[in-house]
């Protein structure tokens, strides 16, 4: 119990004292995860929407695959990205291993299937409702995809937040490809893992509390910006 109390007061102290190291790793966590989610949304939402509105052989298999990839184990993704980016790997010459870019790549791979699979479901439901009306207007192709993505925007904000949640809370992939290097690739989750392994359980939990707080703030800010206003519109 002592540890848990200590964790809360440590978390409060870290934030109130404006701890520079803390702000650095929070900043890195946010910039890596937000960048990864932005890329994943650009790829995943397009992919999900295209799969939602097209019919082609093997489509069912693609949907099953996308849904299954939502459960991609982070460690496996980390390992695969490590093997690609390692000096001995095919992309080794780029020298990206142990950089924030490597972590962005790993998180993008983790988040894209989540965004694509959820977008596919959301857009397909909306398409069922809009189908005949849009056909009647002659809306096809890219215009159809754009219309559906725009009209599903409030649900898609939730999709993006789900992706962000997966990215920011993930440790298995980033610790392998980032290396948890102090002042370079140390993020919230890898710092928590490190403090845990040092036996500083209260500090680790304190950082965990800060991470949950960040998630709350991000989710709150996003719903404040669009979500809440959208709910009433989305009747």
């Amino acid at each position: 119990m002592g540890d848990i109390q200590a964790a809360f007061s440590l978390a409060a102290n870290l934030i109130l004292s404006g701890d520079a190291d803390l702000f650095e790793i929070v900043g890195l966590s946010l910039s890596v995860s937000v960048t990864a989610v932005a890329i994943a949304c650009a790829i995943g939402m397009t992919l999900g929407a295209v799969v939602a509105v097209t019919r082609f052989p093997g489509r069912g298999a693609i949907i099953v695959l996308l849904n299954a990839l939502m459960g991609l184990p982070p460690v496996v993704v980390g390992l695969a990205v490590y093997l690609m980016l390692s000096r001995a790997g095919p992309l080794g010459v780029l020298g990206l291993l142990y950089t924030p870019t490597a972590m962005i790549i790993a998180q993008t791979i983790l988040v894209t299937p989540v965004v694509a699979a959820l977008t596919r479901q959301v857009v397909e439901d909306l398409h069922r409702e809009y189908d005949e009306a849009l056909k009647s207007l002659g809306v096809r192709g890219l215009g159809l995809v754009r219309t559906l993505l725009w009209d599903a925007r409030y649900s898609l904000i939730t999709v993006a937040l789900a992706g962000f949640g997966r990215a920011v809370a993930e440790v298995g992939a980033v610790i392998i490809v980032g290396g948890n290097i102090d002042h370079l690739t140390r993020m919230m989750t890898t710092a928590i893992a490190l403090e845990t392994s040092k036996g500083n359980l209260a500090l680790a939990l304190g950082l965990g509390i800060v991470l949950v707080g960040i998630s709350l703030v991000v989710n709150g800010a996003v719903s404040g910006l669009g979500g809440v206003a959208g709910r009433s519109r989305n009747v």
Partner: peptide, 19 residues
């Protein structure tokens, strides 16, 4: 304008865009 652009239809259930 295409053939499609010169005809229109109103459905049994109104379909409105979320705009």
């Amino acid at each position: 304008r295409t053939l499609r652009q010169r005809q229109a239809m109103v459905f049994q259930r109104p379909v409105l865009l979320r705009r």
